[in-house]
């Protein structure tokens, strides 16, 4: 997992903004699993202070897994050879290329199960 992703995640959450993120987690035995994670921000009813974060995790399909793992591998390499800042820039560049915001991108990943057929067909044309 690239540090870039956790940096973006915590920056967002500490500003009180919910987010969706794909995370590769490690189990105790050393296996891993990919989770499409939706994180909500819970605030104190009276003071409005941030109290808790609640994460909901769901599986992702192979198409999304392939795309995300390739992206994360590249971001991680940039991060390690350069800096965390370079990793963040790289991720933003990736999104800019597609003319998507981070949230739009996550939405596409979330919906990719339905779109997969159409996208695969379009990609084959080019």
């Amino acid at each position: 997992m690239p540090k870039t992703i956790f940096k973006i995640l915590w920056d967002r959450l500490h500003r009180g903004l919910p987010l969706k993120v794909v995370i590769q987690n490690l189990t105790k035995c050393g296996n891993h699993y990919w989770a499409f994670t939706s994180i909500e921000v819970k605030r104190d009813r009276d003071t409005k202070e941030i109290r808790n974060f609640i994460a909901y995790r769901a599986p992702i399909n192979n198409h999304a897994k392939e795309l995300i793992s390739t992206l994360y591998r590249q971001v991680k390499e940039v991060e390690e050879k350069h800096s965390l800042e370079a990793g963040i820039n790289f991720l933003h560049g990736f999104l800019d290329e597609k003319r998507l915001s981070y949230d739009d991108f996550m939405e596409k990943i979330e919906n990719s199960a339905n779109e997969r057929g159409i996208l695969a067909k379009l990609k084959n044309i080019f």
Binding site: A86, N89, F90, H92, G93, F94, D96, E97, F126
Partner: peptide
Amino acid sequence: KKHIVSKTDTKGNILYAN
């Protein structure tokens, strides 16, 4: 059919390459 894409800062330093 393919695009060569990059993002740079205002000085032309590369931040992203596809």
